[in-house]
Design a protein around this nucleic acid. Structure first.
Lengths: 174, 174
DNA sequence: GTCATGGTTCAAAAAATATTGAAACTTAGA
DNA sequence: TCTAAGTTTCAATATTTTTTGAACCATGAC
């Protein structure tokens, strides 16, 4: 159902216009792609992050595009996504209009943000839905076992919703 | 990148051959589909689980197929998946060769199993990979900051690998 | 204001994933 | 052994997701 089996190399049919990834950057990218897949993040986003992660200096839009050999569109969308989840930061050399990107200091914090942004909205959306499910099941006289299951489900959902912010406060420092 | 926006109803173009889902079963199915999407489980699998979860009695292959209006292939593969992750159990009315399916008692345990099965293999696979990355980065004299990041990454990976079984032992009871 | 650099948008194309269903397999019972 | 119910397999198809790239927008330098 998942497990992006070893298409590691095959993703590399890319025409990196210049300065292609070194072997270790490549393997690191594969690592990030693999992990990203588990939480539903696309390969191009994972690659961008990996590249920045392995870079000693902040990189510009063009450098990212050039080294990964992906389209402008992918770079733009990828940076937007990473920005949105606070996983990267930009700086500008002064006198230049060009942004330079680097990963935020804590990868752990980044992952937590990402997870929260995926999970919490789904939980929030679900709360009223489960409420309705339970109500309807009750009025329709579903069996006691089923009602019990549905109550438990609703309980867990709201539990998760209140616990998440506690376990992982908005701006973790680790 | 995710968020399976409200195609709730649209998935319902299905020709349920008979006895289609009741409104609350439907909404529950949508809930499970939404949650399943986050961890990369397909809609048909989520629907099967939802149906069993909302059913007071164990259901046969044919009942599942009929009520959801999906193909034999999907039912077979879905049950295989759920079985494989210990999320459902079968019983047989004696004198019958037909299996009847129901969810395992603890949904929490099921989810943990599922997560473990997705995450742990990826972490295991990654350990040697990160080892190589770090070695190569060292021999190639990557910058101290990058080396530091890579060390941290490797550390986290092995940390997660040893922690996971502790946090969620093989057969949790909750 | 104009222009060129830097970046975004989004419809179309490509790639990945999920679903279907007909054929094949398995096995309990006659 | 033969049969048929019950299930699995897997190549073909449908659907969804990701990527591309040309057209468009924004803004700082002049």
């Amino acid at each position: 159902m998942k497990l992006p089996s070893e298409k590691a190399a095959s993703r590399r049919k890319k025409r990196a216009t210049f300065d292609p990834l070194s072997p270790y950057e490549l393997e690191l990218a594969d690592f990030f792609v693999r992990m990203a897949g588990i939480i539903g993040v696309s390969p191009s986003v994972a690659e961008i992050y990996a590249l920045l992660y392995a870079s000693p200096k902040a990189l510009s839009f063009d450098e990212i595009q050039g080294r990964l050999g992906i389209s402008k569109g992918s770079v733009s969308q990828g940076l937007k996504f990473l920005r949105g989840h606070e996983m990267i930061l930009s700086t500008k050399d002064k006198g230049s209009r060009r942004e330079k990107w680097q990963p935020t200091p804590s990868l752990a914090a980044s992952i937590v943000t990402l997870l929260r942004n995926q999970v919490v909205p789904a939980l929030e959306f679900s709360a009223p839905s489960l409420e309705r499910v339970l109500n309807q099941a009750e009025t329709v006289h579903a069996s006691p076992e089923v009602l019990e299951r549905l109550r438990k489900l609703k309980h867990w959902n709201s539990r998760a919703l209140e616990l998440f912010p506690l376990l992982f406060p908005s701006a973790p420092k680790a």
